[in-house]
Simulated scan of single mutants.
Amino acid sequence: MTKTREATTASAKRTRLTAPVRRQYILDAALDEFSISGFEGATVERIARKAGITKAGFYAHFTSKEALFEALLDTIMLPIAIDDAWELSSEGTLESAVDSFLDILYGDSKTTRRLTIMRLLIVESGRNPLRVQQWYQQTYRPYIQKRQRALESYLRQYTSHTALTPGQIALAFSPAVLAMFWQMIIGGESAASEIAAIKASHREIMLRLLSTD
């Protein structure tokens, strides 16, 4: 956390912050601390200090460091905006739905928070694969299954398709994962052309997958 943010937090403590604002301060501090120290090395004391609160204040929002870690993953890895990606108006088209879906996926893949949490997941999956697997099975997998149902609902309404296979729903997301890795490894303008090419190919794949022609 930067000194500017710490000063802002200290100043904000003189006013009465809402619970959501305090919770976001804790999540921001946790992302910083986990990224530096890893899950095992991070401490509640340091996270609370970075968030500008007491240890007791931390436990008013999260029951444990484990609960905080899961909440951090949920906040960043489960974008709520995707829920609306396939809700078209009466004038909506397949192309506009695909473009909306891809704009969310690829826009999110460039955010610093998203890239940071992906790096953290990769590291923690090596250190403690059970913790990451548990989060995947209990939280992320149901989220992906919900995305599949949203796509299927769209298809029933706007196309003659009736269902997507698990392999097809994976295909709907996997190119964006590749783009994210390019951004993580190369970054900046060097990765921009590669990611643009991946997104264009992804769009073509999605249109072919969902088209009734």
Rank of each mutant, 00 (worst) to 15 (best):
D99C: 03
I122R: 10
I195M: 01
Q134W: 11
Q133S: 15
S90P: 00
T8G: 12
S11H: 08
L78I: 14
E70I: 12
I53D: 04
S125W: 02
P79H: 09
L210K: 04
Q157A: 13
T162C: 14
S153L: 12
I104A: 02
T212M: 15
A163C: 15
R16Y: 11
F58R: 07
A196K: 00
D213K: 13
V123E: 14
S11K: 15
D83M: 08
E33C: 14
P166D: 10
T9Y: 08
T2K: 01
A170C: 13
Q183P: 00
L130E: 15
Q148S: 04
R114T: 12
Y136I: 15
A67Q: 10
I104R: 06
P79R: 04
R208D: 15
P79S: 05
L155A: 15
R5Y: 01
I104G: 08
K65E: 12
K3G: 09
L73D: 03
R14L: 14
L207F: 05
Y106V: 01
L115V: 02
I26R: 08
A192S: 06
L151Q: 10
A48T: 06
I186A: 03
Q134R: 15
P129W: 01
Q145K: 10
L31W: 09
I186Y: 00
G38E: 02
S193W: 10
F173S: 06
L164E: 10
E40A: 12
I195E: 01
I47F: 04
I185P: 00
M180P: 00
A51R: 03
S201H: 06
Q145D: 14
R22W: 11
M77D: 13
W182M: 14
R127I: 14
A85S: 09
S11L: 14
R46Y: 05
L68T: 09
S190Q: 06
A7I: 12
R5C: 05
G52Y: 02
E70L: 11
L105W: 06
D83I: 14
R147M: 15
L207R: 02
G57K: 15
L105H: 05
V21R: 10
